[in-house]
Amino acid sequence: MPGFVEIAREAFAFLESQYHFSIKECVDDDDFGQVTYVNIRNGVAVKLLYEFSNAFVFVFIYRLIDGQICDNVLPISNESEINCIEFNDVLSGVQKMKPAYEYGDNSCYYDGQNGMREYVSEFATRLQKYGGKLLAGAFDEMKGVEQIIKHRAREMRKRRGK
């Protein structure tokens, strides 16, 4: 059975063919799989991360800083500059993906032969359908997501009593 990297590279091949991204890094590990794409010209990177414990594909979109992938500086505050978002935050409620186990045992995502391929392909389809502006380097959509990230950070600080 193919691993996450092979499946993700097939499903997200449009990043290379349509948006001229190149692969920067691939990792297939026992705990996770990761594929990182970069488009220096557009100033964008896409990091696909599948964590087996979460049964979820994270699709991180980065605004490159001087051609480099930079994670958001922690802790996130109202003044923080957000350079990385998780694409699921861009989507509306019904468009959002859930962890594979939330779809139930009868889901096509639980098929022993093609479940992982189906699941990863659905993330690719949504990115291709709804993420064109971000992939082209138009980060206007990040502004709304920045507020979501900052709100989530504030809520986490409240729960921790900080």
Rank of each mutant, 00 (worst) to 15 (best):
P2Y: 11
P2W: 10
G3R: 04
F4I: 06
F4V: 05
V5T: 12
V5C: 14
I7Y: 00
A8N: 06
A8R: 01
R9F: 09
E10Y: 03
E10R: 00
F12H: 03
F12R: 01
A13W: 08
A13F: 12
S17Y: 10
Y19H: 04
F21I: 08
F21K: 00
S22L: 10
S22Y: 10
S22H: 07
K24E: 15
K24W: 09
K24G: 15
D29Q: 08
D30F: 00
D31V: 00
G33R: 03
G33C: 12
T36R: 07
T36W: 06
V38F: 02
N39K: 02
N39Y: 07
N42M: 07
G43I: 08
G43N: 06
G43P: 05
V44E: 04
A45C: 06
V46G: 01
V46P: 04
L48M: 07
L48Y: 03
Y50W: 13
Y50A: 05
Y50K: 03
E51M: 05
S53W: 13
N54A: 10
N54F: 11
A55S: 13
A55T: 12
F56D: 05
F56R: 01
F56H: 02
F56V: 07
V57C: 08
V59M: 05
F60E: 14
R63K: 14
I65E: 15
D66I: 00
G67F: 14
I69E: 03
C70H: 13
D71G: 05
L74N: 13
P75C: 11
S77N: 07
E79N: 04
E81C: 05
I82E: 04
N83L: 12
I85N: 02
F87T: 04
S92F: 12
S92T: 10
S92I: 05
G93Q: 10
G93F: 14
Q95E: 15
Q95I: 05
Q95A: 12
M97N: 05
K98F: 15
A100F: 09
Y103A: 11
G104T: 04
S107I: 08
S107G: 07
S107Q: 06
C108G: 12
C108L: 14
Y109N: 08
Y110G: 01
Y110F: 11
D111K: 00
D111C: 03
D111I: 00
N114T: 09
G115I: 11
G115P: 10
G115A: 11
G115S: 07
G115F: 10
M116Q: 10
R117A: 13
Y119A: 11
Y119D: 14
V120Q: 02
F123N: 03
A124L: 13
A124C: 12
T125S: 12
T125D: 15
T125E: 14
L127G: 08
Q128H: 11
K129W: 15
Y130I: 01
G132N: 06
G132W: 09
G132F: 06
G132S: 07
L134S: 06
L135Y: 05
A136N: 11
G137W: 12
D140V: 05
D140S: 03
E141Y: 06
E141G: 03
K143E: 15
G144M: 09
V145W: 04
V145A: 03
H151M: 14
R152C: 11
A153F: 10
R154M: 15
E155T: 04
M156T: 12
R157K: 13
R159N: 14
